[in-house]
């Protein structure tokens, strides 16, 4: 936990100084998207790395957060803060609807159920045109306003999004090291053994699933106000898959790894745009190569290589001496 605090403080200081010094809006926008992905991925890492369950529909919760916030503020003139809470209610209710039946069962039923749920929600975003604006998207979402302060610029959203992310991260790190987090890790290893210790494993899994859906919904609400325009293309099955990929590519059982994964997969497409139409192709190749050579993710894979090299260096040293 000590290293966690240290890393967390370093990240906070680094981000704060970047926010003060940087003047290029493009960098803010890229980092804002990264932060939103990071927020979702923290929850997903708790679900996958700790509870051992996979969700293939987190883009749907992200989208439900965005659309509920967007519709309530743009069409019904609700205040953004109330909209955000309403969005949380919608997201939690739908997560409960999906999670309750599928988490009773052992195995990867949640993955299949969330996959189905994600596709259904995407079709609803596309087809209920009177409410969501359909494929052409929802326009006229007002900027976020909290107690009289309105967030306008990319820099303001940068500070907001990353402050939310840092708090969520701190909360999740504590959660992972609490008795609750330990129970989850035990659950990951053996569901039967955890049950034998007196834990209601179905309930544990459900709580983490609700938590991760809530993070995704929050990211969605923030996104809607930041972008002021949302369309169904942001909330596809492919985006759900991309979110899961971020967790796996970073290293499943680590919140830091998940953030690294979010960083890599959010920045990579920006870098690859120089290749124009080839970007998808190269993205696929990089994904496959990382997974083949570092199957436990970037964080663990790279630290292992680093340690091996250090060890190798030391033996070389001791031999030469």
């Amino acid at each position: 936990m000590k290293t966690n605090y240290l890393l967390w403080s370093l990240l906070a200081v680094g981000l704060f100084s970047f926010g003060v010094l940087n003047t290029n809006d493009y960098f803010f926008n890229v980092l804002n998207v990264l932060g939103l992905n990071g927020l979702i991925v923290i929850g997903l890492a708790l679900l996958m790395g700790y509870a051992g369950q996979v969700s293939l529909g987190h883009a749907a919760f992200y989208g439900l957060g965005a659309y509920t916030s967007g519709i309530l503020t743009a069409k019904y003139g609700l205040s953004p803060l109330l909209g955000l809470f309403a969005a949380q209610a919608v997201v939690l209710a739908s997560a409960l609807l999906i999670g309750l039946p599928s988490l009773r069962l052992k195995g990867h039923y949640l993955a299949m159920a969330t996959l189905g749920f994600g596709v259904i929600v995407h079709v609803i975003f596309k087809e209920t045109i009177s409410l969501t604006g359909g494929p052409s998207g929802l326009v006229g979402i007002p900027p976020l306003e909290v107690f009289g302060f309105t967030f306008f610029s990319s820099r303001q959203y940068f500070f907001l999004i990353w402050a939310v992310l840092l708090l969520t991260l701190l909360f999740s790190l504590h959660l992972a090291h609490s008795p609750f987090g330990r129970a989850l890790l035990a659950l990951h290893d053996s569901e039967a053994a955890t049950q034998a210790l007196g834990y209601d494993t179905g309930r544990l899994k459900l709580i983490v699933f609700l938590l991760s859906a809530s993070f995704a919904g929050l990211a969605g609400s923030l996104y809607a106000h930041f972008a002021m325009f949302i369309s169904p293309t942001s909330f596809t099955f492919l985006h759900s898959v991309k979110l899961v990929t971020m967790v796996v590519i970073g290293g499943v059982a680590s919140l830091w790894g998940a953030l690294i994964g979010a960083g890599v997969l959010s920045v990579l497409p920006e870098v690859l745009t120089v290749f124009e139409d080839y970007d998808v192709l190269i993205f696929g190749v990089i994904l496959v190569v990382i997974m083949i050579f570092l199957p436990e993710g970037l964080l663990k894979g790279l630290t292992t290589i680093w340690q091996k090299r250090k060890f190798h260096g030391q033996t070389q040293d001791s031999l030469s001496r």
């Binding site: 996958m48 970007d279 496959v288």
Partner: peptide, 16 residues
Amino acid sequence: ITLIIITIGVSILLKG
């Protein structure tokens, strides 16, 4: 799960 992510990568690659 790593293997499944690989198939996702392959899917993106083939589509590209």
